[in-house]
Amino acid sequence: MSGAILLVEDNELNRDMLIRRLTRAGLEVVTAGDGQEALDVMRAAQPAVVLMDMNLPVLDGWSACRAAKADESIAHIPIIALTAHASEGDRRVAMDAGCCDYATKPIDFPGLLRKIENLRGTP
């Protein structure tokens, strides 16, 4: 797999654990701690995929996704919502906000890797 993954997570323990696991899987990881920082990093780094926590400070994940999809310089970047909310309604809200996929916490890591690979178009 090539191309950086942007991990947007404000919880330091969750962020560190995911960074370790993604790095061990051979992925380059850049991070952001809130939705506004995520938009800035997306514009600067043009990551291959974004893993976006939805409950974020400054600008929440839902708003950040909508803003990303409205910005033609980053609208093409696929976003996977990461959330503790597991209902079908929550999934629909994530998709309506512009997410391409959805993963609930606690994260099924092998499943998340498959989602990343599918969005990046790698086998």
Rank of each mutant, 00 (worst) to 15 (best):
V93S: 15
A45F: 00
M95W: 02
D34T: 08
A103Y: 00
I80W: 03
P110K: 05
L112H: 00
A48P: 11
R66P: 08
D108R: 12
V41F: 03
A70H: 10
M95C: 09
R91H: 10
E88C: 06
A97L: 11
G33Q: 05
M54Q: 07
R91N: 14
A75V: 06
L112A: 04
D90A: 14
R43K: 14
D71I: 12
A45Q: 12
A68R: 03
D71F: 08
M42A: 14
A70V: 13
L56D: 02
N55T: 12
D60F: 10
R66C: 02
R91A: 14
A44H: 13
Q36W: 07
H85W: 13
E72R: 13
G111H: 04
D53E: 03
R114N: 12
G111N: 07
V58C: 02
A75M: 08
A45C: 03
H85C: 11
V58F: 05
E88V: 14
Y102G: 04
R66H: 05
P106M: 05
I74H: 02
A44G: 13
M52V: 10
G35K: 04
F109K: 07
C65R: 01
I79K: 01
V49W: 05
M95G: 07
A75L: 09
A103S: 14
D40V: 03
